Amino acid sequence: MTIGRILFATDFSRHAQTAYLYALSLAQAHGAGLDILHVCCEGDWSEEDSEACTRLKAEFSAYAEGQMARYQAPLKAAITDVRTHVVFGRRASQEVARCAGEWGVDLVVAGSRGTGGLKRWIYGSTLDRMLKLLSKPVLSVTERPDLAVDPADPATYVRFQRILVPVDFSECSLSAVRMARGLGTPAGSVIQLLHVLEDVFPIGFDVGMVVPFPNFHEGRLAGARQRLQTVADGLAGYAGTVTTEVVPGVSALEILDRAQEGGSDLIVMGLHGRDFTGERFIGAVTDKVIRHAACPVVTMTCPLECP
Rank of each mutant, 00 (worst) to 15 (best):
L139M: 11
T142C: 09
L134D: 07
V138H: 01
P145F: 08
A155N: 12
S135L: 04
T142F: 00
P137D: 10
L147P: 06
I163Y: 01
P145G: 07
L147V: 14
I163A: 00
P151A: 11
E143S: 04
A155I: 09
Y157R: 02
T156C: 00
A148N: 07
E143Q: 12
S135E: 10
D150K: 09
L164S: 04
E143V: 13
K136I: 14
S140Y: 07
S140C: 08
A152Y: 09
R144T: 10
F160R: 01
P151V: 12
R159M: 12
V165L: 03
R144C: 06
P137F: 08
P137I: 11
K136Q: 14
L147Q: 03
F160S: 01
P137N: 14
A155L: 09
A152Q: 09
L134F: 08
A148T: 12
S140H: 00
R159F: 07
S140M: 09
L147W: 04
P154Y: 01
R159A: 12
P145D: 13
A148H: 09
S140F: 00
L164Y: 02
E143C: 08
D153Y: 04
L147T: 14
F160N: 03
I163Q: 01
V149P: 03
L139E: 00
I163H: 01
R144Y: 06
Q161P: 09
L139N: 02
V158C: 02
R144P: 04
R162L: 04
E143W: 05
L147H: 05
R159E: 14
R162A: 06
Q161S: 15
V138A: 04
V149T: 07
A148K: 14
L139Q: 05
L134K: 09
R144Q: 14
Q161V: 15
I163V: 14
R162D: 03
P151G: 07
T156Q: 04
Y157Q: 10
R144G: 03
L139K: 10
S140E: 00
E143G: 02
L147D: 02
F160G: 01
L147Y: 01
P151L: 05
P145N: 11
P154F: 05
P154M: 08
P145Y: 10
A148V: 12
R162K: 13
Q161F: 08
A152E: 12
Y157T: 13
K136N: 02
P145I: 13
V165I: 13
A152F: 06
D146Y: 12
I163D: 02
S135C: 10
F160P: 01
Q161R: 15
Y157M: 05
L147A: 07
V165E: 03
F160H: 05
P137L: 09
P137C: 09
T142Y: 00
V158L: 00
Y157N: 06
V138K: 01
P151H: 04
A152K: 15
Q161E: 15
T142A: 13
R159P: 00
A155W: 05
R159Y: 02
T142P: 02
P154V: 14
Q161K: 15
V165H: 07
V149H: 03
S135R: 12
A152M: 08
